[in-house]
Design a protein around this nucleic acid. Structure first.
Lengths: 202, 202
DNA sequence: CCTACCGATCGGTAGG
DNA sequence: CCTACCGATCGGTAGG
């Protein structure tokens, strides 16, 4: 693996864990196994590295968007879309942490990111819900756009603080505790149940 | 207002906005209108100030917990509990941001805070749901503890990134845009609708 | 509650 | 990709 890729990987991990401000270039350099000035040979500044990390994340997100838009046109669309989102963050929970930190640390930049990468498919999905409301297959009380945002809150919440809050789940079952850092399947199962039942008529 | 209180107020605001690591004692001192060493006269260290800010937040939370536990015993309990939580964070959205940052920046400390301040009433509420499931007034498919955690994800999400993501809500109505920094009522209304319908039978 | 100051660490640069 | 180094800022202290 080339050094540039290794730098992006370690920077992603550390930015997600401690935030951009909370991560020193020295820490990233140590994790990669190079000296600090070498980072600034590959990326002109910390801000440029930060931007590259976000670009990397968003390009991976854009890989699955076509699949999402395809799923919207099918019958079981919303289960499929939700499954795809959950799979995206399961593959690397750092993605959720990174997006959440960006939203609270730099709301202005995040608004720009959302307008570019979220508005399109959110609009398509909201229209799809409204059509289904018109022909009676989905609850008429659903506020389509607000509903989608609240589902996103659950998804992001599950993958950012899920590993922390799940100590509150009683593990009464005898089949061992979940692996450290992983998400309890009860959280994702309940998320899907809530999302489905709040949307579909009967 | 005495200086100590002013320091706690400004520290709360800045910690919520930029994180503890992202806030210099100098910034807090400037906001209060004193010199930096004066902060360290009132609080022995930045860490001690951070701890005091969290204590302040949790003591305000504990003020409403009795009201919450009382509401659980009533008929309209869950609407009332949710309204109380929404009111708590509406009074100061910094509370949500502070809690969320603590959860992602210091998961270990957050787990301790949750065990002390959340486990008790979460247990009471979960038992209340299970009893209602037994007598058929609530859906048997609800995973009580996981359900409560997902509702918390929506509440915290609404108050931390709601002001940012709500640019995605179409403001088709003619009654002006919402005030800057405030939460669009569509988000809280949909949150309450989703929470209610996912829980109650029929 | 202040002035004056400390060592450590920050992001970044010069030069090879 | 390295050594050597920069000014700025960090949390915190001495002394009044």
């Amino acid at each position: 693996m080339d050094v540039r890729t290794k730098i992006l990987e370690e920077a992603t991990r550390l930015f997600a864990a401690h935030g951009v401000d909370g991560t020193a270039l020295q820490e990233i350099a140590d994790a990669v196994g190079v000296k600090k000035p070498s980072l600034l040979y590959h990326f002109p500044s910390k801000e440029a590295l930060h931007a590259s990390v976000l670009e990397d994340l968003l390009s991976r997100w854009n890989e699955i968007v076509p699949r999402l838009l395809h799923a919207v046109a099918r019958e079981d669309r919303f289960d499929a879309v939700l499954d795809a989102c959950i799979a995206f963050f399961t593959a690397d929970p750092d993605r959720a942490r990174l997006l959440l930190r960006e939203a609270i640390d730099r709301p202005g930049e995040m608004r720009a990111l959302l307008s570019t990468h979220v508005t399109p498919w959110l609009g398509v999905m909201a229209e799809s819900i409204k059509k289904a409301q018109a022909d009676g297959s989905m609850r008429k009380t659903v506020d389509a756009e607000a509903y989608i945002l609240q589902i996103i809150h659950m998804v992001i919440g599950t993958f950012t603080v899920g590993a922390t809050v799940q100590v509150l789940l009683g593990h009464s079952g005898s089949n061992g505790r979940p692996k450290r850092g992983s998400i309890d399947p009860r959280l994702t199962a309940e998320l899907k149940r809530v999302a489905r039942i709040a949307l579909k008529q009967e």
